[in-house]
Amino acid sequence: MREQTAALSEVKIQSKISEQETLLNPTSVLVETKDLSVHYGTNLALDQVNIQVREKTVMALIGPSGCGKSTCLRTLNRMNDMIPGIKISGRVEIHGLDIYAPNVNAVNLRRVVGMVFQKQNPFPKSIFDNVAYGPRLNGLKNRQQLAEIVEVSLTRAALWDEVKDRLDKSAMALSGGQQQRLCIARCLAVNPEIILMDEPCSALDPIATAKIEELIYQLKKDFTIIIVTHNMQQAARVSDDTAFFYMGKLIEVDETRKIFMSPSNKQTEEYITGRFG
C-alpha cells in the first residue's frame, strides 16, 4: 500500500515538474513509447513502435482494422496487463517515468491515465453515483465535496444542463450520446492528465458525435488526449497529430495537417484517400 502511494506521488511530482517545463516549452512530450512491441501469444500485434505525444494536444491513431491501434492505446494505461499470454517489451514513458517499471502500480497509473471505451459503459447506478465512483474509490465520503466534483465533471463533459435535475435517476435512461459524455465525466472526476479514447463515437449518431468532438476540442485545454478513430474526417477535425498504423507497424506520425495534406508515405496516402482499409 505504501509502495503504491509512493509510486503515485512519484508520478504527481513528475507532473509538477513538467508543469513548469510547460511554461517554457508549450509542446513538451508527455507520453513516449520506445521500441514498444506487443505479442499476443506468438502473434505480433505491435512492432517496435516509437511515438511521442505532446502535452495538451490530441493525438489520433488511425489505420485499418486489426492494425494494433487499440493494443497501442491500452498499453498506455496498462489495461492489457490482464490478458493471458500477452508479452510487452520496450518502454512506455509518461513524464519520463517508465510505467512498466516494477515500482509503478497499474491501479494508480490508471488514475493519471483515464480511459473512455468504444461502447458507452455506464454502471447501472444513478448518474451521481457513476460520476462519484472514482472519487469514492479514493476515499472521498463528504457528500458536499462529492457533489462539487460531480457538478464540475458533468459541466466539463457538457452534460450538466441536461441531467442536473435527475442526478439520482439511472444512468441507463440516458441516450447513447449522453451516456458516452457521462463516461467522459466519470473519467474526468478522477482528474487524470491523459485521456485515452477508443473509437468513442463509433456507436453514436452524427449529432451526438459532433457534441463529443466539440467536447474533445474543449478538453484539450486541460488534458492530453489520445483517440483511436476510423473516421478520417474526425481525425482531421479533432487532432493535432496523427499516427498511421498498418499491420502492427507505425508507418507515419506527424502533424495532422501534414498527414492529410502531404503524407510522406504512400501507404498513408492510400489509406487516407480511402483506397484501402
Binding site: N77, M79, M82, V107, N108, R110, R111, G114, M115, F117, K119, N121, P122, F123, P124, Y133, G134, L137, N138, C183, R186, C187, V190
Partner: peptide, 20 residues
C-alpha cells in the same frame, strides 16, 4: 465492460468486485 470501466477508473480488482 462494467469491470473494465471500473478498473480503468483506478479500482483494484477487489474494489471492482465489491462495488460493481
Amino acid at each position: 465492460s462494467h469491470r473494465q470501466a471500473s478498473l480503468a477508473l483506478g479500482a483494484t480488482k477487489w474494489e471492482t468486485i465489491l462495488n460493481v
